[in-house]
């Protein structure tokens, strides 16, 4: 079984093995799970928006 490599999560900045990619940005499973449970009305929501913005994904998507 191939060993998974460690990648730095664009949200929590920790090095993790499991997670998803949003183009070039890696989001670890725990941050993904937290995002799923966070509503746009929650205080914490803006944090995720800002982190994704910082990850340059938005920038790459803007044409």
């Amino acid at each position: 079984m191939a060993q998974k490599s460690m990648k730095q999560c664009k949200v929590c900045e920790e090095w993790k093995e499991d997670g998803i990619y949003l183009l070039i940005s890696f989001i670890c499973t725990s941050c993904e799970q937290e995002m799923l449970e966070t509503d746009p009305t929650d205080e914490r929501y803006q944090y995720y928006v800002d982190r994704l913005k910082r990850s340059q994904v938005s920038n790459l998507l803007i044409q």
Binding site: I20, L22, E32, P40, V49, K53, V57, S58, L61, I62
Partner: peptide
């Protein structure tokens, strides 16, 4: 700002794929 809208939309998409 469009950058924020895309970040929010991306979160919406991640939620969609998961649910």
């Amino acid at each position: 700002h469009i950058e924020d809208l895309i970040s929010i939309g991306s979160i919406g998409l991640i939620k969609a794929v998961n649910t």
